[in-house]
Nucleic acid binder design. Structure first.
Length: 400
DNA sequence: CGCTGGCAAACA
DNA sequence: TGTTTG
DNA sequence: ACAGCG
């Protein structure tokens, strides 16, 4: 559990923590011109605020939910990012996400094109958008996107559970303009029909209080089955979001045999008690205790069980999306880490593990990529950070 | 200039 | 296998 | 119609 040799990419233990207490001592930010060195390319960050860790790995620095600076710039870039996603331009969207994540973590407002371009992740194209923003206070392309009927329609359709950009585009081309029209489409999958029917409820955000109500129910019911289950809310709720579209929960139990059958038991009970209305997605992995098949002894290659549910919230009677994930005890910490997100934080972590540590991180384990692949046993989130040699990042600061 | 970019698993 | 999910 | 890296 000791940190591996550090690659000097991250050093600063301080300047790191939730920062704030911004005693603006000489951050070079006010003096809008650096003194001498303009051409002194000797070192990496000249102009950049030294509190900012300039890296392509978002997981190495804390990113708040709401940026303190560059907020409207971030919102506009997010419009372009989303538009790229809706057009299936995945790589392109990813580039915007890198730039956005950096701006959210950046400790003051960007003041110039040159400053922006020094940030890893901001290249010529996005740099130009920022330049436009600095003079016009908006980004023309983002405004055009927001005003376009196509974007508005695709945006709505793609929010339906079971609908991605391909289906959204298909419906748009058929001339549908509303959710109601989509419901008459003759080629709906079962899940899409459900998604359309539940659309209005699923669009309603849950307050933290709403979520606490649901957690109370889950806690009571799950513990009535096995009192020593461990129940951990993850997802946006754990990252501190005030309002959430769904609730993700990781459940585990110290005894492997019990954990193996837990999902079935929980789902049955939730059905019996009338809380669970629909199963949107049910993944049950063969626990395959038959020792004959597959690899050598000690196989234990079970993956997570999970069930994405439509769950009635008693106080409001609104249907809520609740994602239940059952993890064997041995995979509990990687499951919690993996399901806490954000999506970009996960991508970054896994990419870092692979590229910088020759390891593979997934929600069901941490592996060393030697031949054959060897599992690294971990028992806590902190231990995973330590092994990867990454400074601890609070869940509330994983919002990249 | 060419390659990579996070992943696994269900449904139709 | 392609599409979608978290 | 993106950006970084080797």
């Amino acid at each position: 559990m000791k940190p591996e040799p550090l690659s000097e990419t991250f050093v600063q233990e301080e300047s790191y923590q939730t920062e704030s207490t911004s005693k603006d001592r000489r951050t070079s930010s006010d003096s809008e011109h650096n003194f001498t060195d303009d051409e002194q390319t000797s070192d990496i960050e000249f102009d950049l605020d030294p509190r900012f860790l300039n890296t392509k790995y978002e997981c190495l620095r804390p990113t708040p939910l709401k940026p303190k600076y560059n907020q409207s710039l971030v919102e506009l870039l997010e419009v372009i990012e989303h538009s790229r996603e809706l057009n299936g331009e995945e790589r392109n969207a990813l580039s915007y996400r890198h730039a956005i994540a950096a701006l959210k973590a950046y400790p003051h407002n960007i003041k110039s094109y040159a400053e922006a371009r020094k940030i890893i992740g901001v290249g010529p194209k996005i740099g130009n958008h920022i330049k436009e923003f600095l003079t016009t206070d908006t980004i023309p392309e983002a405004e055009e996107i927001l005003a376009s009927e196509k974007y508005q329609t695709l945006d709505i359709f793609s929010r339906v559970y079971g609908v991605g950009y391909k289906t959204a585009l298909k419906w748009y081309r058929k001339g549908y303009k509303s959710i109601r029209e989509c419901m008459r489409d003759p080629y709906l999958t079962h899940i899409q029909r459900l998604g359309l029917e539940l659309f209005n409820d699923f669009q309603k955000k849950m307050s933290r209080q709403d979520i606490q109500e649901l957690l109370g129910i889950l806690d009571t019911i799950i513990k009535s089955i096995y009192s020593d289950c461990i129940i951990t809310p993850v997802g946006g709720y754990r990252r501190g979001k005030e309002f959430n579209g769904d609730l993700d929960v990781v459940v585990s139990h110290p005894q492997e045999e019990i954990a193996n059958n837990l999902l079935k038991d929980i789902v049955e009970k939730l059905m019996d008690t009338g809380h669970l209305k629909h199963k949107l997605f049910y993944a049950r992995n063969k626990k395959d205790t038959s020792s004959e098949l597959l690899s050598s002894h000690r196989n234990v290659m079970d993956k997570l069980d999970k069930c994405f549910c439509a769950f009635i919230q008693p106080s409001t009677q609104i249907c809520r999306q609740v994602d239940l994930i059952i993890a064997p005890y041995s995979q509990y910490s990687t499951a919690v880490l993996g399901w806490t997100g954000s999506k970009q934080f996960e991508r970054s972590l896994r990419n870092y593990a692979k590229k910088e540590r020759n390891m593979t991180l997934t929600s069901h384990g941490l592996f060393l990529n030697v031949i054959p692949k060897r599992q690294v046993h971990v028992t806590s989130e902190r231990e995973i950070f330590n092994i990867l040699g990454i400074p601890w990042v609070e869940p509330e600061m994983r919002n990249c």
